[in-house]
């Protein structure tokens, strides 16, 4: 992994069988097979199977507490960091299981990046250092010019370059909330992830910043597969290609009720609960 340019070859968008020459570069397909999750003895997720095709945006929707964030965190092995959290089933990236030792866990997380609900730039670092922090964290070396190119290209992709190009030496915390979140996206992109997981990335932001991030999502989705958890139905409609609706009945683990192209989920859902939810009748 010496070449860290983000200009990775774009796989054929929309074709779920797209195969990239190099397995660790370019948008990758992610597959969940029969995933179940527990926190201690409490089962919070059951029988979840989902195909997240390369280069597509998949939105996970559903009321609070239905397990969609938990599911998202199983996709890059963040789930296991919670004490007492366990899971069953398989998660495959380009067909390779991420839980059974075929890929080192740090590689899993580098290839499957994550953007959190609250912007969390590293406060001890400048804007520029934040962007390339992932390289240092995962022990990758780049030359000075590569580093500068990477900072510019990632910030550009995250739609932040013009706003911060003269403030690269400022602390990351000096930016506004929306800018911080885009800085976190740029930071994730700098390690050339194949999949980017977003856990309600706009829920702490104002409408303008939200628009800006949605724009970023649609711009980067060609080169990286995106899975986004959102409570905002309009946002799911605007940004996603496919949608999965999660629901947990009382005292039962969450499941996927319905999954399909976003348009169908919103205009022609098969399940009445989906219809009720997307039309704002509960949740």
């Amino acid at each position: 992994m010496t070449d860290l340019q983000i200009t990775t070859p774009v796989p054929t968008v929309g074709s779920s069988t797209a195969v990239v020459d190099d397995e660790t570069r370019g948008a990758a397909g992610l597959t969940a097979k029969n995933v179940a999750c527990w926190f201690g003895t409490k089962k919070v997720l059951e029988g979840v199977g989902l195909d997240m095709a390369p280069g597509q945006v998949t939105a996970l929707i559903g009321p609070s507490g239905c397990g969609k964030s938990t599911f998202l965190r199983t996709l890059n092995r963040m789930h296991e960091l919670v004490p007492g959290a366990t899971l069953a089933g398989e998660i495959l990236i380009n067909g390779v299981d991420i839980y059974r030792g075929a890929i080192p866990v740090t590689d899993v997380r580098r290839r499957i990046g994550m953007v959190f609900q609250k912007p969390n730039p590293f406060p001890a670092m400048t804007v520029a250092e934040n962007v390339v922090s992932g390289l240092k964290l995962s022990g990758l070396k780049v030359t000075k010019s590569e580093r500068e190119d990477l900072i510019e290209s990632c910030l550009t992709k995250a739609g932040l370059w013009n706003e911060v190009k003269n403030r690269l030496g400022d602390p990351g915390r000096a930016l506004s909330g929306g800018q911080q979140q885009r800085l976190c996206i740029a930071r994730s992109l700098a390690v050339s992830p194949q999949v980017l997981l977003m856990d309600e990335p706009c829920s702490a932001l104002d409408p303008t910043s939200t628009r800006r991030i949605e724009q970023t999502i649609s711009e980067i989705s060609e080169s990286v597969t995106i899975v986004i958890v959102t409570h905002n139905m309009q946002q799911a409609q605007r940004v996603s290609d496919r949608c999965a609706f999660f629901l947990a009945a009382e005292n039962e683990p969450g499941r996927i009720i319905e999954e399909g192209p976003t348009k169908d989920i919103f205009t022609n859902p098969r399940d009445s609960r989906t219809e009720d939810y997307v039309n704002g009748r509960f949740g």
């Binding site: 997380r109 959190f116 590293f122 406060p123 992932g134 022990g139 930071r187």
Partner: peptide, 26 residues
């Protein structure tokens, strides 16, 4: 802050990386 820890982990950070870039500066 757990948020910064998780952020560092999610970038593929090693344990030492998280200590060096998040825990020690904090």
């Amino acid at each position: 802050p757990p948020g910064e820890r998780e952020g560092a982990m999610a970038l593929g950070g090693t344990r030492w990386g998280v200590v060096r870039d998040v825990v020690l500066p904090f």
